[in-house]
């Protein structure tokens, strides 16, 4: 990848902002960490929905699955029996040393990522038989069912949820730790996808989006591509879930782990708002959305859902292509899109 000095400067600026932000606004560390998670949500949703044309409403499943895997691993790593611990409904307080905590968190996040990749491969083979709206509903079903099923599973605390081992240090250090997990994770997701879209893989999933039957007819291994696309979304979502569970400190199936109607829908809205099928669109959409959401939550309490609803309606009715999509239509040349053929060069054969 060749980057111009201007682009490099922009990337550097974002990195510097990301590093200094929690020190400049120490009271907002949690919201800032959430911003990176939101960007990750939008980016990973867009891999499926924007680049590949598979509108998944169930990506939140991987977020929750990662969260539970990480929590269980952390408890087991601290030397507690998970079933016994959950049977006491939080009456047992887990004491961990720094070494135990970091060890458990690290192993937990790794296993969360790998577990979600495995889930994506298994579920992928089931739901990729569905196309268009049926895929959306099918994946939504997976996420809803997961929430309900986990709610009845006593090993992980059922509907009562599960408390994750608490960070042994100061609260400020705790928020900074999670911030500096979320921030590099979002950067890693972005860099990975930027690379992925620049390879053959990127064009192949675009082909699946434009005409999957044609892609099959040309011999593309469509199922293979679709599964890998979903698995890479699941990988990052699983890690983000593991971190989020620790940020909240308490994992519960419906509101925290599998919040289909909040985070599950936000993912879609953010990607659409920014411009689906573009690399920067989801980043832009997530940032705008998160700022609007946090502002309305603070200053328009009681009206926040109305405000978000209005935003979605304006987006869908007037700006279907999203902010970046709209800009691309208005100034195509700036985005390297050609609208007229060039007459220079070779003669037609």
């Amino acid at each position: 990848m060749n980057l111009s000095p201007k682009t490099l400067a922009a990337y550097a600026a974002i990195l510097v902002c990301g590093i200094v932000a929690p020190f400049l606004f120490p009271n907002y560390t949690f919201q800032l960490a959430m911003l990176w998670i939101m960007i990750l949500f939008a980016l990973t949703w867009d891999t499926m929905g924007g680049q590949m044309g598979y509108n998944s409403l169930g990506n939140i499943f991987f977020f929750g699955a990662g969260m539970y895997i990480c929590a269980v691993v952390q408890i087991a790593w601290a030397g507690y029996d998970v079933a016994e611990y959950t049977a006491h409904f939080g009456a047992v307080k887990i004491e961990v040393t720094y070494a135990q905590y970091y060890g458990g968190l690290m192993v937990g996040l790794i296993l969360a990522a790998l577990g979600c990749v495995l889930f994506a491969i298994v579920f992928g083979h089931i739901v990729f038989g569905l196309r268009g709206p049926y895929f959306a509903i099918g994946t939504l079903g997976v996420a809803l069912a997961a929430g309900e099923l986990v709610g009845t599973w006593d090993y992980v605390g059922g509907g009562g949820g599960i408390t994750v081992p608490f960070y042994p240090g100061e609260p400020d250090a705790r928020s900074l730790l999670y911030y500096f997990l979320c921030f590099p994770l979002a950067i890693a997701t972005f860099s990975f996808l930027k690379w992925l879209y620049s390879t053959r893989f990127g064009l192949a999933i675009n082909a699946i989006r434009d005409d999957e039957e044609k892609a099959e007819g040309m011999g593309i291994h469509t199922l293979r591509y679709k599964t890998i696309a979903w698995a890479s979304s699941a990988f990052f979502l699983g890690i983000s879930g593991g971190i989020f569970g620790n940020m909240v400190g308490f994992v519960e199936p419906l509101e925290v782990a599998f919040p289909t109607v909040t985070f599950g829908i936000f993912m879609v809205v953010m990607a659409l708002l920014g411009g689906k099928g573009t690399l920067w669109g989801p980043v832009l959409g997530a940032t705008v959305f998160h700022i609007i959401k946090e502002t309305t939550w603070t200053y328009m309490l009681g009206w926040q859902w109305v405000a978000l609803g209005a935003l979605i309606i304006i987006n869908i009715v007037f700006f279907q292509q999203g902010i970046l999509g709209w800009a691309q239509e208005k100034w195509p040349e700036r985005f390297g899109i050609k609208v007229e053929g060039d007459d220079s060069g070779r003669e037609a054969g």
């Binding site: 992925l196 620049s198 390879t199 053959r200 893989f201 064009l203 192949a204 675009n206 082909a207 989006r209 434009d210 005409d211 039957e213 044609k214 892609a215 007819g217 040309m218 011999g219 593309i220 291994h221 293979r224 591509y225 890998i228 099928g277 899109i337 050609k338």
Partner: peptide, 30 residues
Amino acid sequence: RIYSKMNCVENMLVSVPHRRETYRMMFSEY
């Protein structure tokens, strides 16, 4: 049937034979 949102060169590139495609090739550039 073509891939209508991609440009002509991209349409052509994605049409390379997939007979001997390995996993490594999927993630390489053209």
